[in-house]
Each structure stands twice: as structure tokens, then as C-alpha cells.
């Protein structure tokens, strides 16, 4: 891990020194024990801030649309990319958010990120004040406890099912011993949900979504959600109601937002992690990815020349669900 960190700093420092990039987006230590957070390095001296560990949970591609003006001026951006970040960047290239040559991808094969909430659950209601990582184990400390866990037991669901931990596209690669996940593509949670009865499913879904407070953190944390005007904000026409006591509007918001990412979602899990109400949004988005794979044998963000699956048509596309 330290080796990776050192290498990242080296690469970022060199890129900045040679003025190859204006800015490197990476991770630094946060102010909370279980959080690394996005950081924006603009001068070589600051590369020491950059860190790499199992808390680097954000998908950094989400920041690319903010820098359109900078890129239009001809400046380039370096991005520290996990497998999911890299796939989101490919989506951005496909959709002309950025041009390939505007981004320098510093790729790190990833072992999966920790799920804060799963760990917190173990010691609830106590607060975790310290977390340290040592190879495959993590140690958490609080005021009256200290516990050691196996890291792989506490990864985010989406990291467990991740299909491409190694970035598919890069300019610089930081070598690591990462192996693809054993549960890669095995969406057990979805299958379990699917096997339930129809009304049970509806109840589970609506119960989950009923907590939504419409802070739109899921939308804003999502690298695929970068529309200038989101459908929820339109007033003329107004697509959906604005309240939270009308639960139908919450349900519609989640369904429509999810569907807008159909064939564009990389299953990075950012939406789920961002939700302050612990709504399991991956329950929706994963399903779409499964269908994209099943119906069209498509995975998001693998082919820079390709198009998102719903943007193309082929005569032998699946006709499932259509009238014969």
C-alpha cells in the first residue's frame, strides 16, 4: 500500500512538474477516521498529500464535468483511477464530456473499498475513532473497544461484485497484486430480491425509498449524472412532484434516475454510499447492469470507440418484453 502511495506521488509529481497536467485529482486523508476524500493537487509540492488505502471510495470521474472550461483552454487533468473510475471516464469519452487526450489516467488496480456502514454496524451505537489497515486485516478502535476484522468481509457490495478491478484504460499504471473479485458479477443480493414475490418486492422497494429526503446526493455523486438540468428540476413541464410526503414521487425519482443510467452505470456504488439515509440504491442500478449484460452482452465503459448500449441499434438486439 505504501509502495502504491509512493508511486502515485511520483507520477503525479512528474506530471505536474513537466506541466503535462494542470491538476491531479486524487485522494487525501479526511477528517473522519473512516474517510479518505477527493483532493485537487495543482503544485508539485502538494503531492505528499496524496494517499491510497481502502477508504478511497469516491468515483473521481464525477468531477470531470466541472472542468470543462479548463479543458477547453487546452489544459489537461490527471485522475487517479480505480477500475470503476476508469470505466466512468470511458463513458465520458463516449459521451463527449471530455476528450481522451484531455485526461491523463493514473490507474490503480483496486482491491475493493471498505463499506463504512457495515463496519459501524458491528459496534453500533458506539463511535469508531480510529481505523488502521494492515494487509488483509483492519483494526478499529473506539473509546471502549478495539476490534480486528478481515477486510474482505467488509467491502462494499458493489466492490464485491465488481467486474473490472483493473482499470480498462490508462496512461500510467501503478502495479499491484490485485486479483479480480471472487464474486465478480455475482449479484446474489439482486437474485435474492428477484426471487421474492411481486408484492413483497414492491413493499421492500417502497419502504426503502420512503426514507428519501431528496437531497440528491445519489445524483450528484454519480459520474453518469451530469445533465445540466435534471428532470426533477424542470418546471415547464414539471415531470415529477416536489414533496416528500407523496411517496410516489420519491419512487418515481429513484426509478427514473436509475433508468437514466441504464447501460451507463459502472456500478461503482457511489450513489449508495452517498445516501445519508442508507437507501440501498444499488438494488436498482445493479439490476440494470445485469439486464444490459443478459440482453445485449454489454458492460459500461469498456470500449472507448463504442456507444452506451441504449444509444445503438442492431437488428439482432433482444426483443424481450416486446409484443411478438
Amino acid at each position: 500500500m505504501e509502495k502504491i502511495e509512493k508511486k502515485i506521488r511520483e507520477i503525479a509529481g512528474k506530471l505536474l512538474k513537466d506541466e503535462k497536467v494542470k491538476l491531479v485529482i486524487g485522494f487525501e486523508n479526511g477528517t473522519l477516521p473512516m474517510k479518505a476524500r477527493p483532493t485537487f493537487i495543482k503544485i508539485q509540492e502538494n503531492v505528499e498529500k496524496l494517499v491510497w488505502n481502502s477508504l478511497c471510495e469516491n468515483n473521481l470521474a464525477v468531477y470531470i464535468p466541472f472542468y470543462r472550461q479548463l479543458m477547453d483552454k487546452g489544459d489537461k487533468i490527471g485522475v487517479i483511477a480505480k477500475g470503476c473510475d476508469a470505466r466512468s471516464l470511458v463513458l465520458h469519452f463516449q459521451e463527449n464530456v471530455a476528450k481522451r487526450e484531455q485526461i491523463v489516467i493514473i490507474a490503480i488496480p483496486c482491491d475493493g473499498m471498505l463499506d463504512r456502514r457495515k463496519i459501524e454496524k458491528e459496534v453500533f451505537p458506539n463511535e469508531i475513532t480510529e481505523l488502521s489497515e494492515n494487509g488483509d486485516t483492519i483494526v478499529i478502535k473506539g473509546k471502549e473497544f478495539e476490534k480486528t476484522f478481515k477486510k474482505t468481509d467488509f467491502l462494499c457490495d458493489d466492490c464485491n461484485t465488481c467486474t473490472h478491478r483493473k482499470p480498462v484504460l490508462y496512461d500510467e499504471l501503478v502495479e499491484s497484486s490485485t486479483k479480480e473479485s471472487e464474486k465478480s458479477g455475482d449479484y446474489g443480493k439482486i437474485k435474492e430480491f428477484e426471487s421474492k414475490e411481486q408484492d413483497k418486492r414492491w413493499k421492500l422497494f417502497t419502504d426503502e425509498v420512503s426514507r428519501c429526503i431528496r437531497c440528491y446526493a445519489c445524483r450528484n455523486a454519480c459520474p453518469s449524472c451530469y445533465c445540466k438540468e435534471c428532470f426533477v428540476d424542470c418546471t415547464n413541464p414539471q415531470w415529477i412532484g416536489t414533496t416528500i410526503d407523496e411517496k410516489t414521487d420519491l419512487e418515481l425519482f429513484q426509478i427514473i434516475r436509475t433508468f437514466h443510467t441504464a447501460g451507463r452505470c459502472v456500478n461503482c456504488g457511489s450513489c449508495t454510499r452517498a445516501c445519508p439515509m442508507d437507501i440501498d440504491i444499488s438494488l436498482l442500478v445493479n439490476k440494470l447492469s445485469i439486464d444490459a449484460k443478459r440482453l445485449f452482452d454489454y458492460e459500461t465503459g469498456l470500449d472507448i470507440e463504442g456507444k452506451p448500449v441504449l444509444n445503438k441499434y442492431s437488428e439482432d438486439d433482444s426483443n424481450e418484453g416486446f409484443f411478438e
Binding site: F193, E194, Q198, D199, K200, R201, W202, K203, L204, F205, I255, T258, F259, A262, G263, L284, K287, L288, D291, A292, L295, L310, E320, G321
Partner: peptide, 14 residues
């Protein structure tokens, strides 16, 4: 895919 998603979430088939 939309149809599949809605049915998956528990909306009536059809």
C-alpha cells in the same frame, strides 16, 4: 430494460 426494471421492483407484469 425499463419493463424488466419495473417488474423487478414489483409492478404488475404487463
Amino acid at each position: 430494460m425499463l419493463k424488466s426494471l419495473l417488474e423487478y421492483l414489483g409492478l404488475e407484469k404487463g
